[in-house]
Write a protein that binds this DNA or RNA. Structure first.
Length: 753
DNA sequence: CTTTCGCGAATTTTT
DNA sequence: TTCGCGAAAG
């Protein structure tokens, strides 16, 4: 590597002088397949951005570069950092493509709509729309909506799409009833999407994968354009994304993927960890660079998280080191119940603030969104500024979805899901009966609902009243559409949005009432107008506009709606704001803070109860915990409550098994006396009393813990002893010894269940 | 046709 | 606890 540096001139040396040897190798290995294994805090973004700058400095035209990320935030940060590296050469970055996977696919599909056989002005369905479409699909497939929930059916369909399996293919090799049924719903669901000119998230990837697979001309064109491909967070790619990446890589095979198998946390969504594990097999002669130095966290944090992740069967041995010193130990704190836990976190943060850490450098992470409620309350009560990173929440509010549905209908007249949502919102005399009649007519004549409304005179079943109401509705939308598409009266996007809110009657509906709720809804609608005003078109469009091709309102709405459909929670973390950030562990991926608290480290929460049956899922929970811990630079606080109220029911909880897996010397334990156990604590820490743990008893010999139940007189454990059957013992008094699982005491022995 | 009420089910994570 | 759905009342 040294001679590489010797060969560099002044300006390029500037790009390397502060990098480690491994990082330099990752930056300068520009030809052929390259896998960068980047542990937490190892300077992954630095490497990718320097690599882009390096390629540009080598004279590679910017439009030949394509970098794909998972979130808008990651893409934005990458763009900013490239710009910071190359401040003077703005026009040299023209055509440089740094986008999210989904955003990139959406763009390709609009560009090649004909080849991909999608409508050019397709709508992207978010999870709410998808749910609505799935319900209709289940109904159309003649199945009982009670047994076939949108969630379960949707997951099955999603899995099919990730594997590029079409409904027909799925049905053709269907054996059992379940598979056949899913196939039927899948076909119905896809028919709805097609009729509505809509694509769901999976379709964005699927359609592009199929396009690249089947259309050689398009594939070649893209391969020729994008000579250098980079993919961030590669451990979270699914099969469709792998297909896309493989197809984009031309004969020169310049593909660089960056990721960390230990941070794969989207398996539940179809992410396939083998993409990164098998990279060297998929792309023969790939170079592998492992970034082993952690620039982010202090020693105890690095050691503790390493100790945890080593417990995973799937973990590949490797060492990470930091040169930032040992730092503070991790605080592991217990609390009586969740309110105390939240208060303790706030008190801790307040102390850090007094010591000089700004609020924006602190974050609270949790497994499930429901936990944010208690935490928010505690922060509010203490008057500590906080922000809940929930980018999508605003756009999920009913009144916002209503307003957006009107806009969607303007852009895409065939969007029946949007139409259903707003045809009677606010009420305009078109009830269920009328809608049913319209639908019957539409099906009979093979029309969309929008078309049927345009010819509502021909629907004899409708009452005159309903007919008139529908006619008015149809004309209203048609008028908007005409005005948006080249009409001269409209000034700009926010004006148009506000006009729709007004003329649709949404505004009036909330202005009539004066309840707290109505006022909030009005404010939200105002907020939407503000959001429209603050929105700026993405770069490609902006460049086109600079050339004098200004966008019509219709095009602006379409682009705005697309950007809304593709926002994620993490996108909303604003480093400029002076608040503590509250978010899920998933949303925290890729971020870092000086001070991090993880709340709710309890059995059933983290790891989540739904992962109990499956070792693979449990390992993903451990990775999730690992991701959370490694977000911290200096201070990490893990906490649990002994009691937690979920859905109005208070339940006893156990500390997470993960706490028992952390090296003792990295922890500063601040557990509290468990009020349910009597006095003397057992020699085994509570969190090690897990179902499945192996123990040895002085009299009964070897056994396995089957149940652990906290009781007023002390926590009891039911243990299945190899020779004595099951016994229930008081944890505090039993003379038990925990057997190291590595000893494999069960080898060759049938464990009685 | 609209509104209200009561019941039952549910929440893990999200582009 | 909260949401969504269906039934019954207005």
């Amino acid at each position: 590597m040294t001679n590489t540096i010797d060969l560099m001139d002044e300006s390029t040396h500037e790009l390397m002088h502060d990098l480690t040897e491994a990082q330099v190798e990752a930056v300068t290995t520009t030809t052929g397949p390259l896998l960068v294994l980047a542990g937490p805090g190892s300077g992954k973004t630095t490497v990718v951005t320097r690599r882009i700058a390096w390629l540009l400095a080598q004279g590679v035209p910017p439009w030949q570069l394509l970098a794909l990320t998972f979130t808008n935030k990651a893409a934005g940060e990458m763009r900013n950092r490239v710009e910071a590296l190359l401040p003077d050469v703005a026009q040299d970055r023209r055509g440089l493509t740094i986008m999210t996977f989904h955003g990139f696919c959406a763009r390709l599909l609009r560009q090649y709509s004909e080849e991909a056989r999608v409508a050019p002005s397709f709508t992207i369905y978010d999870s709410t729309d998808r749910r609505a479409a799935l319900k209709i699909a289940v109904r159309n497939a003649g199945l009982d909506s009670g047994n076939w929930t949108p969630a379960s059916v949707g997951e099955a369909i999603s899995n099919c799409k990730n594997k590029l399996t079409t409904a027909e293919q799925h049905e053709s090799h269907a054996g059992d009833f379940y598979t056949r049924s899913i196939g039927r719903v899948y076909r119905e669901y896809q028919a709805i999407l097609t009729r509505n000119d809509a694509l769901d998230f999976d379709d964005l990837l699927l359609k592009v994968a199929l396009l690249l697979r089947d259309d050689q001309a398009v594939r070649t064109a893209l391969q020729e354009r994008f000579q250098y491909l980079m993919i961030d967070e590669y451990q979270d790619t699914n099969q469709a994304q792998f297909m896309i990446a493989s197809a984009l890589v031309g004969p020169q095979r310049n593909i660089c993927v960056v990721g960390d198998p230990d941070q794969s946390i989207y398996g539940w969504r179809g992410a396939d960890i083998s993409n990164i594990l098998d990279f060297e097999h998929q792309f023969q002669s790939a170079r592998v660079v492992s970034l082993g130095r952690n620039f982010r966290s202090t020693g105890h944090i690095v050691d503790a998280s390493a100790g945890l992740i080593q417990r995973n069967e799937s973990h590949r041995e490797r060492t990470l080191h930091t040169e930032l010193g040992a730092g503070d130990q991790i605080v592991v704190a217990g609390a009586v119940e969740e309110h105390d836990e939240a208060r303790d976190i706030v008190a801790d943060f307040r102390q850090r603030f007094i010591e000089g850490t700004p609020w924006r450098e602190m974050a609270v992470l949790y497994r499930i969104n429901a936990l944010s409620r208690v935490l928010e309350q505690a922060f509010r009560d203490a008057q500590v500024p906080y922000v809940v990173a929930r980018g999508t929440a605003f756009y999920e509010r009913a009144e916002i979805k209503d307003a957006l549905s009107y806009l969607r209908l303007v852009v895409n007249p065939r969007d029946d899901i949007a139409l259903r949502r707003v045809i009677n919102t606010p009420p305009r005399g078109i009830g269920k009966t009328s809608l049913d009649r319209l639908e019957k007519h539409a099906i009979l004549h093979q029309l969309g609902l929008g078309d049927a409304i345009d010819r509502v005179d021909e629907v004899p079943a409708l009452t005159a009243r309903a007919q008139a109401a529908m006619k008015r509705f149809g004309e209203m939308v048609a008028r908007w559409r005409a005005d948006a598409d080249g009409g001269s009266l409209i000034l700009d996007l926010p004006d148009f949005v506000s006009r729709i809110i007004r003329e649709s009657g949404l505004e009036k509906a909330f202005r009539n009432g004066s309840s707290e709720e109505d006022i909030a809804r009005l404010e939200n609608l105002d907020e939407l107008v503000t959001a429209a005003a603050e929105w700026t078109p993405p770069r490609e469009e902006a460049e086109a506009e600079a050339k004098g091709e200004s966008m019509t309102i219709l095009q602006q709405i379409a682009a705005w709606l697309e950007s809304i459909a593709l926002v994620s929670d993490a996108d909303m973390v604003d480093p400029e704001n002076g608040s503590v950030t509250l978010m899920t562990l998933h949303a925290a991926k890729g971020l870092e803070f000086d001070v991090v608290a993880i709340a709710g480290l309890e059995q059933g929460l983290l790891p989540h109860a739904r992962s109990f049956e499956d070792d693979v899922e449990r390992e993903e929970e451990r990775r999730l915990c690992y991701v959370g811990m490694t977000r911290a630079r200096r201070l990490l606080r893990l906490s649990y409550a002994n009691r937690r109220t979920v859905r109005g029911i208070t339940e006893r909880t156990m500390p997470s098994q993960f706490l028992g897996e952390l090296p003792a010397e990295t922890m500063d334990r601040q557990d509290i006396a468990d009020p349910w156990s009597t006095g003397t604590a057992s020699t085994i820490p509570l969190e090690n009393w897990q179902v499945g743990a192996t123990v040895r008893h002085a009299t009964f010999g070897l056994g396995m813990i089957r149940r652990v139940v906290p009781r007023p007189r002390g926590t009891t454990a039911t243990i299945e002893f190899l020779e004595y059957g099951h016994r229930t013992l008081l944890v505090a008094h039993a003379k038990l010894e925990l057997v190291d699982p590595d000893e494999h005491p069960w080898e060759g022995i049938d464990i009685p269940i």
